[in-house]
Design a protein around this nucleic acid. Structure first.
Length: 476
RNA sequence: GGUCCCAUCGUCUAAUGGUUAGGACAUCACCCUUUCACGGUGGUAAUAUGGGUUCGAAUCCCGUUGGGAUCACCA
């Protein structure tokens, strides 16, 4: 049988990292076995629907290259792929389940507050009195227009048992399972019901989801069994944590995929990083494209313990991806961060200097502020022990540097470096005693993206000479 | 609280009864060097805890501790 997995998000807002990782594993499980990856929108809770949320889901999946084989926008043989459009499909199954004894009509009405301590009000959930109403009578009340919901009936005792691909055998006592609502009074199914019906009708072979569903899975199995349907293979995933105590969640303002992209992280790096959060290839390699992951992914190597999302390691990995970019591509990505740059600046040279030095694109502005305007720096910057240079050295050498630069025709890194090195030799001083003061004069900063000659190329000849002049004046 | 799940360096993880417990990030030191990076070399750093089983346990079993999940007409 062809492997089919689905990503079934609710359109409730941004795509957070845990969600994206779940989608990724669903995608990879399907693709590793030559199967299909289906996108299904679960919008049965009308109250939580957020406008534009489905577009975010589409865009995110497309950006990272997780192309779905069937979905709301492209259709498929198992549509529709939006649960609200499937609304009329669920009720008949719910009524059928009642006939089969797996569910019952419940007229308890909505409970405002449930009483915990010795109150009798929570009995509806575990031992619903409505399930003792004779079916014929219940049907009459339904036909008469009395409001009702359909609840799951759990009459079994003993232990339920199933196998999960990650966690192994899970046994839960039937007494622990609540008789939850399957069909709401508004006629919509709950997740508990809709996912079973849809996964069956869409012939989903592997149900992949967060491990918060581990305890409720026996309820779904009961339904599969009652309908006489084959249970799917279960793959429950450990949680992605923010720290040892807290789950990563959008509500707490934790980074979403789009937040990370906005902060200058590359989608490829994000995918690579989250693939390794709870899974490993069994080798010591860490850098994988999604296409490579499709080839080597296997559920056997999925981990069961929760993993903490480490932005520091993601940042390192992002740096790897940035450095691997060809310079034209990097330049294109960097361009939006080049704001307020004067026209004399050589942007290509700037990109070349930046690429090996940054780990996220968002680090660009802090690196290039000196290009926009020379900071009002302290002359103490000219003091550097290792370079054997100080204010006096700068004062003596800067006018010589100026002469060389003025005479320089070929304004590129190699030629400039050769010329200044020659100057050092001619003056009988160390390279650093020329290059260090030059760099400070050009940038006014202690650390810069590149050495003196690289900065000169970035700034251009006119601006460079202007800054050297300013430095000479400053030193007095 | 009941139930379920989890537990190797600070973090992500490898080692499916026998390894000097390996790698990566971070961190520290050194090298390279035209500042800073990049790159290179090396160091610090872990089997939560107590019992078993076994010739031998990170690995299997039980308890303890710690953490997470779940118990909605949310998904």
């Amino acid at each position: 049988m062809k492997t089919r997995t689905r990503f079934a998000p609710s359109p409730t807002g941004y795509m957070h990292i845990g969600n994206l990782r779940t989608a990724l594993y669903e995608y990879l499980i399907a693709k590793a076995q030559g199967g299909d990856f289906i996108l299904r929108i679960e919008d049965t809770d009308q109250k939580r629907y957020v406008e534009g949320a489905t577009e975010i889901i589409y865009n995110t999946l497309k950006t990272v290259g997780m192309n779905w084989d069937e979905g709301p926008d492209i259709g498929g043989n198992y549509g529709p792929y939006v649960q609200s459009e499937r609304k009329n499909l669920y009720a008949p199954y719910a009524h059928k389940l009642v006939e089969l004894g797996g569910a019952h009509y419940c007229f308890c009405g909505e409970r405002e507050e449930q009483v915990d301590e010795d109150g009798n009000e929570i009995i509806c959930k575990f031992e619903d009195p409505c399930k003792r109403i004779p079916l014929e009578e219940a049907k009459k009340r339904v036909a008469a227009g009395e409001p009702y919901v359909i609840r799951q009936t759990i009459n079994k005792s003993g232990k339920s048992k199933y196998e999960d691909k990650v966690y192994g055998i899970i046994e839960i006592d039937y007494d622990e399972l609540d008789e939850g609502v399957l069909l709401k009074s508004d006629g919509f199914p709950t997740y508990n019901f809709a996912n079973v019906i849809d996964d069956h009708l869409m012939e989903i072979t592997h149900v992949v989801r967060g491990n918060e569903y581990l305890p409720s899975t026996p309820k779904y199995n009961l339904m599969y069994d009652t309908f006489g349907w084959q249970r799917p293979v279960y793959v429950h995933l450990p949680t992605v944590m923010k720290d040892a105590q807290h789950k990563l969640s959008k509500r707490n303002g934790d980074a979403s995929f789009q937040d990370l992209v906005a902060k200058g992280y590359l989608p490829e790096a994000i995918i690579n990083y989250i693939a390794l959060l709870g899974w490993n290839p069994g080798t010591e390699e860490e850098i994988f494209s999604i296409a490579e992951l499709e080839k080597i992914f296997s559920v056997d190597r999925l981990n069961k313990s929760p993993a903490i999302f480490d932005i520091v390691k993601l940042t390192w990995m992002n740096g790897i991806y940035i450095r691997a970019l060809d310079i034209a591509k990097f330049h294109e990505l960097a361009l939006p961060y080049y704001k307020d740059i004067p026209s004399h600046v050589e942007l290509k040279a700037l990109s070349r200097a930046l690429q090996p030095r940054i780990e996220t694109l968002a680090q660009i502005p802090e690196q290039i502020d000196f290009v926009i305007a020379l900071p009002n720096y302290s002359v103490d910057l000219y003091i550097n022990k290792k370079m054997k240079t100080d204010v006096e050295v700068a004062k003596a050498n800067l006018p010589e540097i100026k002469k060389v630069l003025e005479a320089q025709d070929e304004w590129n890194n190699e030629s400039l470096f050769e010329s200044l090195k020659a100057l050092a030799e001619q003056l009988g001083v160390k390279n650093g005693q020329i290059l260090y003061p030059a760099r400070i004069a050009l940038s006014g900063k202690e650390t810069t993206p590149g050495g003196a000659t690289e900065l000169a190329v970035i700034l251009g000849k006119a601006e460079s000479l202007k800054r050297i002049d300013a430095a000479i004046a400053k030193l007095g």
